[in-house]
């Protein structure tokens, strides 16, 4: 650890803690997960970057959405995302969550993930290489440093928009709203 880093740690311990302990939810959303095991195991060893998978979303603050999202999975994703403690960061992995990718005309996959939950960063490609996950993670570090990774704040402040879109897709929702639907009541 160099001197600058040490000063940073002393000045902003919370931010540095967030940055270097990105614990990921263990949720194999779709086909992108096939590049996650190599990243976690011996060859690429994601623990160097502080990324480890954890069993429950309550302990996690990184949500790696790996691949296309069907309507049924989206429900599970939203429930998982809402259970995570703040601050929480989302990375969309692969082309499909960005704009539908290969499945742009499929009747069962949603095309733009950021219409339903906030996404902090995207990793494009099908499949992206494992190195791309690290680039994504280091970019996320930079965003946390500069205070740009504010997806969870956006979710809180514009909950009426996100919840409205979710209800529009699902018809009725089985669980109550996480925040009050009146906007502007959740300033930090």
């Amino acid at each position: 650890m160099d001197r600058n880093n040490l000063i940073k740690w002393l000045k902003e311990p919370k931010k540095m803690g967030n940055k270097y302990s990105l614990w990921a939810v263990y949720f194999s959303t779709a086909c992108g997960v096939i590049e996650v095991p190599p990243v976690l195991t011996s060859r690429w060893d994601a623990e160097r970057f502080g990324v480890i998978p954890v069993a429950t979303p309550r302990q996690a603050n990184l949500f790696l959405i790996t691949g296309y999202v069907t309507t049924k999975t989206l429900k599970a994703i939203i429930r998982t995302y809402e259970q995570m403690a703040e601050p929480k960061y989302t990375i969309g992995f692969g082309s499909c969550p960005i704009n539908g990718g290969m499945y742009w005309d499929s009747y069962n996959t949603i095309k733009h993930l950021d219409k339903f939950i906030p996404v902090d960063g995207w990793i494009a490609g099908c499949m992206p290489r494992p190195e791309a996950i690290f680039i994504g993670v280091t970019k996320l570090w930079g965003m946390i440093d500069k205070g740009l990774a504010t997806g969870y704040i956006r979710y809180r402040e514009h909950y009426d928009y996100y919840r409205g879109n979710q209800e529009r897709l699902f018809g009725s929702m089985e669980w109550p709203p996480l925040y009050s639907l009146k906007e502007g009541t959740h300033d930090e």
Binding site: T70, K72, T73, A76, M102, S106
Partner: peptide, 26 residues
């Protein structure tokens, strides 16, 4: 099941013979 249903067999009906190669491997 159904968390990963994309309707491949329907998607294939919309693409020509060669276009289906990049699709089916997924």
């Amino acid at each position: 099941p159904g968390y990963l249903h994309r309707g491949f067999e329907k998607l294939m009906e919309y693409r020509n013979w060669i276009q289906n190669f990049p699709l089916v491997c997924r």
